[in-house]
């Protein structure tokens, strides 16, 4: 019952997101076909392209055609690249997905380790130190940190490339190397936030009565931390991780531009520059859809960990 409700909300959110994304670009002033062909285009050419792109149909119909296309995995054709958008996206995903995954893995490991350690050391100096570091981490713009990393590892030490991506087929090792700095740049800022959340959630849990009960049963500190602390602290941590995923994706878009990685982020940018609105629409919808899906998974996951959540429907 709970799952059903959540699933319905998930679908509804996807729908609402698609409407919003479409609406934003549908109110674009001027005729898109005109913009694409340029000022020197003849009125007939503009009209032909307009009809070809289906821009002369009423807005709800255009929305429907686009949305139906999405569901059928038909994403249309890019005007600037003249290739099916689905192919473009697939190509770019080969860069963005590994990057996001690598960043996510680094973030999770770092923030769980540091957060739990800080909580166990509270209020000693290790805890204070980690908190100070995370405070700095939150304040640093990820793209600035990326530039600093480039400065150190590419310019000075020349260990890692400053940008670009050779492709998985040709040079897999070099390809992996070119994802390291971007992933680290992304991970640092994300971990700073998550470390604080993890530590705070853990400290809250350690103050609870049932932790005292566990101690009264004879469990030592380590056993209490693992068996009673961690699982209970996971729920708020997982929730925030889900919310942070949106930040991660956005960060990926920015970082790809810093390192000139041919991922979805660069695609969006180039499409914006080329006024290739369909590409922008599709990619933004894809990214938004991922975020919504991740949040859905986190919701269900949290309910599985904490059965009390299935009780309250809101």
């Amino acid at each position: 019952m709970f799952f059903l409700k959540r699933f319905v909300t998930f679908i509804a959110t996807l729908f609402a997101a698609s409407v919003l994304i479409f609406a934003v670009q549908a109110v674009l002033p001027g005729n898109a076909a005109e913009v694409m062909l340029g000022t020197s285009a003849t009125p007939e050419a503009v009209q032909a392209l307009t009809r070809q792109l289906g821009l002369d149909r009423p807005v709800p119909v255009r929305y429907w055609r686009w949305a139906a296309g999405l569901c059928a995995a038909n994403l249309g054709t890019s005007v600037s690249y003249d290739t099916p958008i689905a192919d473009l996206i697939r190509e770019r995903l080969a860069v963005t997905v590994p990057l996001a995954a690598l960043a996510m893995v680094l973030t999770t490991i770092a923030s769980l380790a540091l957060g739990l350690y800080a909580a166990s050391q509270h209020p000693r100096s290790a805890d204070v130190g980690i908190m100070a570091l995370s405070q700095i981490g939150i304040a640093i713009p990820s793209f600035w940190f990326a530039i600093l990393l480039i400065l150190l590892f590419s310019v000075k030490l020349q260990w890692l490339p400053a940008g670009g991506f050779p492709g998985w087929q040709d040079e897999p090792v070099q390809a992996l190397k070119s994802l390291v700095l971007p992933a680290v740049a992304l991970a640092v800022v994300q971990s700073a936030i998550l470390t604080r959340i993890t530590r705070s959630a853990m400290l809250d849990v350690l103050r609870e009565d049932y932790v005292r009960t566990a101690r009264a049963k004879g469990l030592n500190r380590r056993q209490v931390l693992w068996r009673h602390g961690l699982r209970n602290a996971l729920v708020p941590v997982l929730t925030v991780m889900g919310l942070q995923f949106a930040n991660l994706l956005t960060g990926t878009v920015v970082i790809e531009n810093v390192f000139s990685l041919p991922g979805l982020g660069r695609l969006v940018f180039q499409a914006i520059a080329n006024r290739d609105m369909l590409v922008v629409q599709d990619v933004v919808m894809l990214l938004a859809g991922c975020v919504i899906a991740i949040n859905f998974v986190v919701d269900v996951g949290c309910a599985w960990v904490d059965p009390r959540l299935t009780l309250s429907a809101s």
């Binding site: 609870e208 049932y210 566990a214 699982r231 904490d306 009390r308």
Partner: peptide
Amino acid sequence: EPMTTLNPLH
């Protein structure tokens, strides 16, 4: 406190 003495997730 019986309400808070037991771990809610176990």
